[in-house]
Design a protein around this nucleic acid. Sequence first.
DNA 1: GTTTCAAATGCAATAATGTTGCAAATGTAA
DNA 2: TTACATTTGCAACATTATTGCATTTGAAAC
Lengths: 137, 137
Amino acid sequence: MNPNEVLHEHNLKRTGCREGIISVIMESGNPLSENEIRDRLSGTFDRTTFYRSFKTLQESKIIHKIVVDNQLVKYALDNTITQKQEHAHFYCEECQSVRCLESIPVKTPPLPDGFKATETEVIIKGLCDKCQKNIHA
Amino acid sequence: MNPNEVLHEHNLKRTGCREGIISVIMESGNPLSENEIRDRLSGTFDRTTFYRSFKTLQESKIIHKIVVDNQLVKYALDNTITQKQEHAHFYCEECQSVRCLESIPVKTPPLPDGFKATETEVIIKGLCDKCQKNIHA
DNA sequence: GTTTCAAATGCAATAATGTTGCAAATGTAA
DNA sequence: TTACATTTGCAACATTATTGCATTTGAAAC
């Protein structure tokens, strides 16, 4: 599924900013921060437009935020689009990247009486494979 | 352990702001946001002092941030102080409160080769017991 | 291909959030 | 009580996010 199809399926107009955000995240394969996304878009859009586009894309459940540690915000495509199942995320404290760990599915544990879950997030922090290698090099 | 003892054990000076932050979180029993903490402290401290106190308390591993959803930041006492084990947190999408779910311990799952974990966070989102009751009332 | 109109954009103004430098005040150990 | 490093509060500044509004643009109907 390409960005335009995604937008069309969600009844959103096809605009440069929205299209750009989706395709940059798609190409990366991993969650990106707002700045990482902007850096990868050649033509720059207004800051306001970015915020509004993110908001729209989130409201339409196309992307969602992952917030880790220092208020670092990363955006990822929704599982319905990537066709991944719910999975854990790994945050590297060294290079600050976030990776999807598809090998680790997320199960919501049984909750105390009266609580009802809609979503579960698992964030594992530590050192990623690349940084580990660099340190030992 | 009272706030002063905690500060002393971590070799920090006993100041009003630090003491206040710790005791408010202790009394609440659940993570609180910066504003929630300030609201509960009668005498108000400068914004800057708050930030710096939070920073100091985090650096000394007395409190830590829990970030959920909309960049909402909540502060909780460290497990070494509360003597709780690592546990999941529940975020109520209705009343925006965060609760410690001590009945749900957190286990770090086996990671792919090359990854090394230092910490795992589990945030479950949904409706808390109180809000569920109110909706059905 | 044109027309039409709601929706989206970009700009400016404003608000909210976080940081830094520095003089004055405060905590603690001698 | 003294001495001194640490912390505080203020002001200035930097960064991040939001709102109003005139202009532009996408896409559906003709």
